Simulated assay, not measured.
Amino acid sequence: MVFETLTRWRSSNPPPSPHDPFEPTPFPTLLFRAPVKLVLYNLFHLFTHLRSAPTPSDPPIRVVCISDTHDSLPADIPHGDILIHAGDLTNSGSVADIQAQIDWLSSLPHKEIVVISGNHDTYLDPRTRPSLTELQRSGAIDWKRVHYLQHRRLSLTITVDAPDSSSPTITERSRLLSGPRHRRIRLYGAPQIPACGPMSVHAFQYPRGQDAWSETVPEDTDILITHTPPKYHLDLALPEGMGCEHLLAEVKRVKPALHVFGHVHWGAGKMVVWWDGCHDAFERGMAVQSRWTRGVLNPRLWWNAVRVGYRGIKGLVWDRVWGGQGQRTVMVNAAQMVGNTGKFGNRVQVVDI
């Protein structure tokens, strides 16, 4: 829902610390600190919500997305062709804890299982490994049938089972293509995140604002897996956003069918980003800095809010009236933990691409 994030902000308990950017900012504070961006944000998400769902390719591949399990094991994982874990398998990052997560993942029935690291998976980054005790870093990791991606590309051939020909929902074309079919899927995974803690403890960090992404993702990537969100997308976008602006630029360049990430627990959810003028205006407006006026007297910010409205209506007509969809990326923040509660509660996201 369009106002789902704001509802979380109002109902969070206990009240978040104003100094913790990984906690949602209370609505009254947002109304004071970023009133125009609050309008911009909700206007953009309103138009995004009203657009049609993307049509999957034929045959569709079902991707099940999880992240930030932090040593726990979700009880009910939906069936799918590919299971993706977008990092923070553990809390301490020890070999034993990572192995326990791998053992669980490899026992699941999905055809392919793909994993990247998060900043809590300390052992997997040689720079942070010395922060572990000798006992915590002793032994070796057996990845079993799990594909581990660390700045690495992976190409998978997925066999899609034939649909039940007796089902009344099956089309005549599907009846003719009654045998199993195959589809090639290209994935790329990278764990690096903007710094959020001590460099010697939190894995795969780079200084916030540094470009660690440009020209790193192969152009033919179908599924991109990162631990950090892209800036302003499922990352507690208001008032500042905890994602990376350089990753957003890279996603925009490549335009994968699916981008899976986690890290910002309160941003959990799913959205479709249409790479059009409405999104361009949203991105530019959110990047505008207005300190003492809170943006109220900033004509550039208001102009981008107007452009979001105009471009949003134009895109909605193109979609709903003419049936056009255009280039898009399904973005999924797959964090399982609800904020910093240490408890599961976020939905496991399932996407057909």
Score class of each variant (00 low, 15 high):
residue 169 T to D: 15
residue 199 M to W: 07
residue 133 T to V: 09
residue 176 L to E: 06
residue 171 T to E: 12
residue 132 L to F: 12
residue 220 D to F: 00
residue 209 G to A: 13
residue 106 S to P: 01
residue 170 I to M: 02
residue 197 G to Y: 11
residue 114 V to N: 05
residue 220 D to N: 02
residue 212 A to G: 02
residue 158 I to T: 04
residue 132 L to D: 05
residue 202 H to Y: 15
residue 199 M to S: 11
residue 145 R to E: 13
residue 152 R to P: 00
residue 146 V to F: 07
residue 129 R to Q: 14
residue 160 V to D: 09
residue 186 R to T: 08
residue 161 D to Y: 02
residue 94 S to C: 04
residue 91 N to D: 15
residue 91 N to T: 13
residue 171 T to S: 14
residue 223 I to L: 01
residue 213 W to M: 10
residue 199 M to T: 09
residue 227 H to I: 11
residue 205 Q to M: 13
residue 120 H to F: 09
residue 96 A to N: 13
residue 113 I to F: 03
residue 141 I to A: 04
residue 159 T to D: 10
residue 86 A to R: 06
residue 193 I to R: 02
residue 208 R to G: 01
residue 154 L to E: 12
residue 159 T to G: 09
residue 116 I to S: 00
residue 123 Y to C: 12
residue 150 Q to E: 12
residue 194 P to C: 01
residue 215 E to Q: 12
residue 177 L to M: 15
residue 133 T to M: 03
residue 195 A to C: 09
residue 218 P to F: 06
residue 202 H to K: 11
residue 116 I to A: 01
residue 121 D to E: 12
residue 115 V to H: 04
residue 193 I to A: 09
residue 162 A to C: 04
residue 121 D to P: 09
residue 215 E to M: 08
residue 152 R to L: 05
residue 99 Q to C: 13
residue 200 S to L: 12
residue 104 W to M: 08
residue 112 E to D: 06
residue 87 G to E: 05
residue 165 S to P: 14
residue 104 W to Q: 11
residue 197 G to N: 08
residue 208 R to I: 00
residue 146 V to W: 00
residue 148 Y to G: 03
residue 174 S to F: 00
residue 202 H to T: 14
residue 185 I to T: 10
residue 187 L to H: 02
residue 120 H to W: 08
